[in-house]
């Protein structure tokens, strides 16, 4: 249990429990409180995921804005008997059961997928043509070769295979514990190196592999993960302006295509927000209800 894990569990508990509390609470105001707890914890999770800008936005907009808006709604509509509108217990059970079913479905899906393999597959690293693999292998150090092809020696190859800083040591240990076998094996048709069966990679291992292949300039593929975690405000800002320095600064050659940013969606969303603002104001404006309209 590292500090990271501890913090994660605390925040996860806060988020999940807060959400469940929102469901279970019948008082609207308390629901709002638990919502704030849940959203805040989620923001913490975002920090934990190195998404500092998103987390800050979450705090500002959700916790600071949306929830306040909701509480305004509560205050404007909560009159006497309607503050507590109870759902029937049977309903709660039925929907709770359904919710549990859905959750288990999600759980089954989440645990049923080898996310490490999947992410490597996304980066085209799960299967590599034999010629390219062997070309790259020529330049590899002995430690790397062992890691890739799985010689049974337990030598401390961590020096060469240590690309990351903050959690490297633990990861490397885990790597040696779990990935004793080879990462890649030659396919049956002897043309492609594939990730070994039942191979579960830690984040560190995966990052290492990605870095290993990225170090090869012939591999014209952007890196999966920026090496410098956090500090996302600036790249996000650039991407909203249409530039992607987080991707294009490390690209293989000057001839490669530039990545696309989010200028147009950004503009669309801004216009959308304006329209929503006007629309909301229109909808919420005070109406004089005439007696004739009442039916």
């Amino acid at each position: 249990m590292t500090a990271h894990d501890v913090i994660f569990w605390i925040l996860a508990l806060g988020a999940g429990a807060g959400a469940i509390a929102v469901v279970l609470t019948q008082n609207v105001v308390r629901m709002a409180f638990w919502l704030v707890v849940s959203l805040g914890s989620t923001a913490g999770l975002f920090f934990l995921l190195h998404a500092d800008f998103v987390a800050a936005t979450q705090l500002l907009i959700y916790v600071g804005g949306t929830v306040v808006l909701l509480i305004f709604g509560v205050m404007l509509t909560a009159r006497g008997p309607y503050v507590r509108i109870r759902s029937s217990t049977a309903e709660l059970f039925v929907s709770g059961g359904l919710g549990l079913l859905v959750f288990f479905m999600f759980y089954a899906a989440i645990t049923g997928v080898d996310w490490n393999r999947s992410t490597l597959a996304v980066a085209d690293l799960a299967a590599i043509p034999r010629d390219r693999f062997e070309e790259r292998l020529d330049d590899a150090t002995a430690a790397e070769r062992e890691l890739l092809l799985g010689h049974a020696e337990h030598e401390p190859a961590a020096d060469a295979a240590e690309p990351h800083g903050d959690e490297g040591r633990e990861s490397t240990a885990g790597h040696h514990d779990e990935a004793a076998g080879p990462f890649y094996v030659l396919d049956e048709d002897a043309n492609v190196y594939r990730l070994a069966p039942a191979q579960r990679l830690t984040t560190v291992q995966r990052d290492y592999l990605a870095g290993f292949w990225k170090a090869d300039d012939r591999m014209n593929r952007p890196p999966g993960i920026d090496k410098r975690e956090g500090g996302t405000a600036r790249p996000i800002g650039f991407s909203f302006l249409g530039a992607r320095p987080d991707r294009d600064l490390g690209r293989a050659s000057a001839d490669a295509k530039l990545s696309t940013g989010y200028l147009l969606p950004f503009e669309i969303v801004s216009v959308h927000l304006l329209v929503v603002l006007i629309g909301a104001a229109y909808l919420a404006r005070a109406k004089r209800r005439k007696p004739a309209d009442e039916t």
Binding site: A15, G16, A19, I20, V22, V23, M31, S38, T42, I85, R86, S87, E91, L92, S95, G96, L98, G99, L100, V102, F103, F106, Y107, I110
Partner: peptide
């Protein structure tokens, strides 16, 4: 998933 399911159940139960 927990958050999502809680949200769905919340929508389904709250009057």
């Amino acid at each position: 998933a927990v958050l999502f399911v809680a949200g769905v159940v919340c929508m389904a139960t709250k009057r």
